[in-house]
Design a protein around this nucleic acid. Sequence first.
DNA 1: ATGGAAAATGATAATATTTCTCATTAGAGG
DNA 2: CCTCTAATGAGAAATATTATCATTTTCCAT
Lengths: 145, 145
Amino acid sequence: MQERWREVFHSFNKKATPSRCAIVEVFEEKKKHLSAEEVYECLRAKKKKVGMATVYRNLDLLLRMGILRKVNFGDGKEHYEMIRQALQHHHLICTRCGEVIDCGDVEDATFFERLREDFARKYRFSVASYHVSFYGLCARCQDDL
Amino acid sequence: MQERWREVFHSFNKKATPSRCAIVEVFEEKKKHLSAEEVYECLRAKKKKVGMATVYRNLDLLLRMGILRKVNFGDGKEHYEMIRQALQHHHLICTRCGEVIDCGDVEDATFFERLREDFARKYRFSVASYHVSFYGLCARCQDDL
DNA sequence: ATGGAAAATGATAATATTTCTCATTAGAGG
DNA sequence: CCTCTAATGAGAAATATTATCATTTTCCAT
């Protein structure tokens, strides 16, 4: 399975270093959005010692390669998630406690397609992807008012 | 016009200080998303000397009062915009040059209502507001490839 | 296999943004 | 006008991210 990533990196003329491979593996395993710090901790837990600078450098590379995307929950740090896992998946962000719930399988292809056309026409902007953040109260916080 | 805000602050048991009033006025005048630094610069331009700490403190207060909301474009800083001006308005973010285009009047009430019901049922999450970020290439960057 | 060029890494310094501290000032009700 | 308390300014501190540079590693051609 790491062989597949090795080829992907090579196709971008990038080296398949152990740190780099370990970082994509973390995202494949966790299947969720992670901050740079969280990635670093996951690597530690797996006994891989990778410096923080290397984590950031590779997150940036994976962004440029179109493998990760950034998402932000207003907590002061950037979070990253695999685009492949992120398709059709948005976030419910609790404005009281900060909890983030991933919500998958939103059936919105029609909505998206219509907007893509609108934006191309009105602003000459070509949409590649999109992300919806929903703000409100999670179940727990609704009860605790 | 500042008299109106004076009353709003008082209704929250907050003092209507010159800095505080000046900050909401900046948002009313600019009618767009601003970073803390940009707010600070706008105040300077108007010859109001307000410390950076005060800007941050009041942005936070205005968030808690539900007058502003945070938006993030992945450029390392938080941006703030008036919720009143932000209804039905989303952002087109160019992944090449970072330009942010506001796109208003998105006709999506039906889409939104359906999701609100879905989330209440599935996750017991009550949606108060939402925000869509569209990523892609702006007109200029499409030409410059 | 081995050597060498180029890229990647680690450690740490630097930068940028946001929050905190605390002494001083100023708003609002009496 | 006085007093209580919240708000402010200035700067220190905390956080998150990026840059620097000497050293190590990958990978391709030999």
